[in-house]
Design a protein around this nucleic acid. Structure first.
Length: 476
RNA sequence: CGGGGAAUGGCGCAGAUGGCAGCGCGCACGGUUUGGGACCGUGAGGUCCCGGGUUCAAGUCCCGGUUCCCCGACCA
């Protein structure tokens, strides 16, 4: 019997149980690191492939940069080194000898990319440079959790260089939208695009944007980031180009990243007491077929239909598994629900006789999600159903998110709202205010949503007049 | 890195006062079963987290360390 702690009882235990029982990942023998098992990695691969396609569609190409970065590179940008120093893994020895200059295991690649860009970019004709990298990075984290915060994590990091700040900023926002679309359309995850507060900015950026998503326990997960690096790294690494007017100018650079943390969001947003619920587009198995029979005669009949259904669904481009294991149907139902398979097809003697099958959808529990469907046009039906499940998951998540955010206009209201959700409140973007929020509420400024009504308010912390509101809540 | 909890078979756990390392699930084999986690029988599987110490004897007591979980500080 699988052991999944009820989500309402202990969210954290539930999360870890799901990861174990759904075969997503194991702990590694190294502190803070995980082994991603095939089922978990396959989900990540689908996420990666969808995202990669979107990068290509927006004109980006992939490349690879070294894992090792000379210590001096990290130190070239003042804020950057200050921000990352506490979490660097440093290689001091190689080949049995002490290194002359220590090498940092990349915590992110702005610096070593900057080095190359300085060589590659000579003229305005070389711009923009739009490159993405799929790699892993290492940050010496104090407190880790599978997928959400591991010492080594897989992600992509985009690095671009532009002639003007206007172009760079457009790129930063374009990629934020790419992430947003990926989350909604591929992962059925809602969220809020917004600008991070000055306090929460990436080390070395002049502006950071994020998508903040509400998890099932009402805490926020920063799902991705997109940074306007201004000319900070261009100056540090001499990334310059000769403009039309024959004068040398510094480039404007950007960087943006999304990690396997988003898989953690998929688990925490969609999962339920039965286990994982996967959005169809990233589900390794979209449809599982469970045959039901009492004897060899029935078995033969049922399998004939089941195999036929399997073939036709596969031909229709669906990822299908016919579960022919020697287990009871009930066991298989629970097993696949735990693994989050969006659609289950049950085929028994009655269905064979009726030339129909029972179709159960993972997003609706029990009988509510179960219906008899004719073999005629089954592929089309399932195809449409998967789309419906996607929208249903997105809607459930979005409704949950929206119903747990309160508009607040006073500190008292914020204080109360943050006990059990998020506050949307007028806030002055001042690190002192962020600090106050953290100390008083153990919550933080998530971001200043980009899509917000204009208005004039009074900051809930400082009391000064402000023109925008921030999302405030507890976060991962 | 501070405070709290934990570590015994793949998973979940039990092992007062030190005295043969156990249970449920899972796994293997055989049989009966199969429309919401079937059952019977047989069997395999253990450096009791690691290293020291006390003792005739340590899963159990003492010291040191590691890892995991929770709450903070720090972060994608």
């Amino acid at each position: 019997m699988a052991k999944i702690t009820p989500r309402s009882q202990d969210f954290s235990e539930w999360y870890l149980d799901v990861i174990r029982e759904a075969d997503l990942a194991d702990y590694a023998p190294v502190r803070g690191c995980i082994v991603v098992k095939p089922y978990g990695w396959t989900i990540y691969e689908y996420m990666r492939d969808y995202l990669d396609k979107r990068f290509k569609e927006t004109g980006h190409v992939n490349a690879a940069f070294p894992l090792f970065i000379p210590m001096s590179f990290i130190q070239k940008e003042a804020h950057h080194v200050q921000g990352f120093a506490p979490e660097l893994a440093v290689v001091t020895h190689g080949g049995g000898e002490q290194l002359e200059e220590p090498l940092v295991v990349r915590p992110t690649s702005e610096t070593i990319v900057g080095y190359s860009y300085a060589q590659w970019i000579k003229s305005y004709r070389d711009l923009p440079v739009l490159i993405n990298c799929w790699n892993s990075v290492v940050r010496w984290e104090k407190r880790t959790k599978p997928f959400l915060r591991t010492m080594e994590f897989y992600w992509q990091e985009g690095h671009t260089a532009h002639a003007t700040h206007e172009d760079a900023l457009a790129e930063v926002l374009r990629m934020l939208d790419v992430y947003y679309a990926h989350m909604r359309e591929d992962c059925a995850l809602p969220g809020f695009r917004g600008r991070k507060s000055i306090h929460e900015r990436f080390a070395g950026a002049i502006n950071t944007f994020s998508v903040e998503t509400m998890m099932g326990d009402k805490r926020s997960l920063q799902s991705c980031t997109s940074h306007d690096l201004g000319q900070n790294f261009a100056r540090a690494f001499e990334i310059k180009y000769l403009d039309r007017d024959n004068t040398e100018k510094y480039c404007w650079t950007t960087s943006w990243g999304l990690s396997w943390r988003l898989l953690g969001a998929v688990i925490m947003v969609h999962g339920d007491d039965q286990g994982l619920r996967l959005p169809p587009k990233i589900a390794p198995i979209q449809v599982v077929i469970v045959p039901i029979f009492k004897n060899d005669t029935e078995r033969a009949q049922v399998f004939e239909t089941a195999e036929q259904v399997s073939r036709s669904l596969k031909a229709a481009g669906l990822r299908v598994k016919l579960d022919d294991r020697d287990e009871t149907p009930g066991y298989k139902f629970n097993d696949w629900e735990m693994r989050g398979v969006p659609v289950r097809i049950e085929i028994g003697p009655k269905d064979v006789a009726n030339r129909s099958v029972m179709v159960a959808r993972r997003d609706l529990p029990g009988k509510a999600g179960k219906a008899s469907v004719s073999l005629e046009g089954l592929s089309e039906h399932i195809h449409a159903l998967l789309g419906e499940i996607h929208h249903s998951l997105l809607k459930q998540a979005e409704d949950f998110q929206n119903s747990n955010i309160r508009e607040c206009f006073s500190w008292e209201e914020v204080k109360e709202a943050v006990q059990d959700g998020w506050a949307l409140a007028p806030l002055e973007d001042n690190p002192a205010n962020d600090e106050f929020i953290r100390e008083q509420l153990t919550a933080k400024t998530l971001n200043f949503p980009l899509d917000q009504a204009e208005g004039e308010w009074t900051c809930v912390v400082s009391g000064r007049p402000v023109r925008e509101r921030a999302l405030i809540g507890k976060s991962y």
